[in-house]
Design a protein around this nucleic acid. Structure first.
Ligand SMILES: NC(=O)c1ccc[n+]([C@@H]2O[C@H](COP(=O)([O-])OP(=O)(O)OC[C@H]3O[C@@H](n4cnc5c(N)ncnc54)[C@H](O)[C@@H]3O)[C@@H](O)[C@H]2O)c1
Ligand SMILES: NC(=O)c1ccc[n+]([C@@H]2O[C@H](COP(=O)([O-])OP(=O)(O)OC[C@H]3O[C@@H](n4cnc5c(N)ncnc54)[C@H](O)[C@@H]3O)[C@@H](O)[C@H]2O)c1
Lengths: 209, 209
DNA sequence: AATTAGTTGTTATTTATTTCACATTTGTTT
DNA sequence: AAACAAATGTGAAATAAATAACAACTAATT
């Protein structure tokens, strides 16, 4: 079975989140155009994505919500749990720890790290903060495969290198320093300033019209 | 002059950030392949983007760093300042306020909002927090054109509607509730869970190989 | 049971984005 | 000053992503 395009993965993640809401409201079936409407994309796009999952609707009733959630999970989630660590417990890291914790059953936040002695041993939403020097040890003992980087820019490269050295498989980088990792490590970078500048640009453009 | 593709805008934003670093290090010229290397993209991509700016290098010396920063600014930035408000001063909103404040001279964080009475009047990095009820008034008096939404999911739609009603021109939404805004309002949505799930998916895929 | 209407799955098409390939330009070397 | 080298700018090609178009299917209606 082929690896899905990144764009499709993003949308599947969103579909699932919306579908879980619908399930809470006891919605049993949903049409492609309804799901599309919620996410603000086209119905064809939805159908195309679901096609890639090889999942079919019940004709004239739509897609069964619960089963669709299940199928998306089968495709996106690892069978075993994937363990995540967050490195840098400042403003953003702390916000993320509480936000991400428990949000997906298969993605566990299992460790936090900081070099600040004051934060050592601290717990956020029940997850312990370790000194950065124990990175390697904890990654091994807790089988961490994904690292989220929220340290100051100046430390980003150092931290990434350490993660890679200790066998991490994926990195989500929130600093605005572009990282350079081996091709067997999945990398996702996100920069909030870029998002803000993008909105600002399109606002400017629309006003010039 | 045509509106740039969103992808190009994103990269220009990144180029500028890197170029500003280079300027600090007194680098005067840079080749397309050097900039490409830093951002981890191809040199052609860099040249194509700069081509869209109509900006030329000095042959065999590269692109003059300072002038390039200037040209990117002319294209991305509004001539006048663009004023930004952040709505929802919880973990993420607070982190963002201190992060975004002052990061681009033309993008000013001028107001923060929260419904929590305890936060009223509070200042973060010198910016005042107003009660949500004063949204309309403050947007007008401070000429806010961009709103950043960091309220709980349940309030996201309500807040967006209020922003639109009060004439906001652009919204950056960090909740994972998809928003529905009129087409004259620029919308940028970002969901950290999606990023994390994406990394997790590609980690899983790479391990199945 | 025939007709209608609504929705899907998929192929074809279009549009957007990236990469290739190379002629062109100009500093440097011989 | 000729040959070379390094980089650029860009048209053409390739790739990726989104949209359109529609035949096929079936639940509901007559
Ligand atoms: N605050 C935001 O909203 C925001 C948004 C986008 C990006 N960022 C980026 O995220 C990063 C963190 O932002 P922040 O506002 O949380 O900063 P912060 O200064 O509040 O937090 C950084 C934390 O990292 C710790 N740290 C420093 N070096 C470390 C190391 N080598 N190993 C482990 N921990 C280390 C510090 O002790 C501190 O607790 C920055 O690079 C920033 O550019 C922040
Ligand atoms: N924490 C994160 O790292 C993170 C990451 C991604 C997305 N998010 C999303 O961002 C949002 C905020 O996250 P958070 O962790 O900061 O939550 P939070 O609960 O810490 O903060 C929310 C703040 O919004 C205020 N608020 C509530 N209703 C409001 C209204 N109508 N107008 C103005 N203010 C209002 C609350 O008083 C509170 O201060 C959530 O929707 C969350 O899903 C958070």
């Amino acid at each position: 079975m082929d690896t899905l395009p990144g764009k499709t993965v993003e949308r599947l993640s969103q579909y699932r989140r919306r579908l879980l809401n619908l399930l809470d409201d006891n919605v049993e079936y949903i049409f492609s155009h309804e799901l599309a409407e919620i996410i603000q994309i086209s119905a064809v796009q939805v159908r195309r994505d679901l096609m890639l999952l090889g999942f079919s609707s019940v004709h004239r009733k739509g897609y069964p919500v619960e089963m669709l959630i299940e199928v998306i999970g089968q495709r996106l989630d690892d069978e075993k749990e994937q363990n995540v660590a967050i490195i840098g417990m400042g403003n953003l890291g702390t916000a993320l720890a509480s936000y991400l914790n428990g949000i997906r059953p298969k993605l566990k936040i299992v460790a936090l790290f900081d070099i600040d002695k004051k934060k050592e041993g601290m717990e956020i939403v029940g997850v312990k903060c370790y000194p950065f020097s124990e990175l390697g040890k904890v990654i091994k003992s807790k089988r961490v495969s994904i690292g989220v980087i929220t340290v100051p820019q100046t430390s980003a490269k150092k931290v990434a290198a350490q993660l890679v050295k200790n066998g991490i498989k994926g990195i989500l980088n929130f600093t605005h320093i572009p990282l350079n990792v081996p091709s067997n490590v999945s990398l996702e970078e996100y920069d909030m300033i870029t998002s803000l500048e993008k909105v600002a640009y399109f606002v400017k453009e629309s006003q010039e019209k």
